[in-house]
Design a protein around this nucleic acid. Structure first.
Lengths: 141, 141
DNA sequence: GCAACCTCTATGACATATCATATGTCTTTA
DNA sequence: TAAAGACATATGATATGTCATAGAGGTTGC
């Protein structure tokens, strides 16, 4: 039975959460994917990050991040300007439109999380986090 | 901090596990993706399933399953034949090559799981499963 | 200084995720 | 039984995941 496999449960939980999150963002009339939102949010926090560093923070590949950034630029949520001391890079900036999108998404995400974690205590959450971290460490070595 | 968000932990755990699994399959010289393997395995268990039913079992979209089946057919791991009473469908069969692939992957998967779950007790696993199931239910309603 | 090496970004190739829809085929209902 | 609805599969469009690599630009060591 697939349902007895823990990785199946993990996959099911995260997929269902992602679907809920994206549905609610769409329903709020916001034109962004959750993955793009995550990247945008990380850039907002620190605009000096390289794509590789962004990729590490959001657990994605540099190639994926490059394409998401290209889309965010195309959609006007990000702007880029050259960096003086390093011609390989560009400095990314969240545009006012990007800021507005972040602000609009924030409450939706908070509601999603609250819904997803209903009936789960802080202690259980800590346990969950600890076990998942253990799996992560077991897999990375 | 992203690391404080539980969905980040879930995502990190499952991604790292998937990467470990795929790396070990590749390293064993087996030409199949984990997703294709999962589909092939489900078909082996019940060859009368429709694509939609397979998709439900493996938590994927019918469109994704259709494309994976197309690849499995192309690679010779599956064969299809018409179904007498319903012209919409085809009956899928795991070929000998498919059987061999499943047999070769099995021990790799078992080793992966054992590695990923090192140091986690049966009781903790049950807790993990219960919490993830709760998140899933919270998100599906 | 410059050769070897490393970093940053972009992109090709292929697989998957998701939604929408097309097409053909049952099935049900008026 | 014909029309309407449901179902099975395929596919277009777009986004992401992953690996590999190209191409331009830094950095280091000699």
């Amino acid at each position: 039975m697939l349902s007895r496999i823990i990785f199946y449960s993990i996959d099911k939980a995260i997929r269902t959460y992602r679907k809920l999150a994206q549905t609610n963002i769409d329903r709020a009339g916001i034109a962004i994917t959750i993955d793009q939102w995550l990247v945008l949010r990380v850039i907002e926090e620190d605009q000096s990050l390289t794509q590789t560093e962004i990729a590490e923070r959001v657990l994605k590949d540099q190639a994926s991040v490059a394409r998401m950034i290209a889309l965010l630029l195309k959609h006007g949520l990000l702007a880029s300007e050259p960096v003086a001391h390093d011609a390989r890079r560009t400095r990314l900036q969240v545009t006012p439109q990007g800021q507005a999108t972040l602000a609009a998404v924030e409450p939706v995400i908070l509601r999603n999380r609250a819904q997803a974690l209903q009936g789960i205590s802080e202690e259980e959450l800590a346990t969950l986090r600890r076990l998942l971290e253990r799996i992560y460490l077991n897999c990375s070595t």
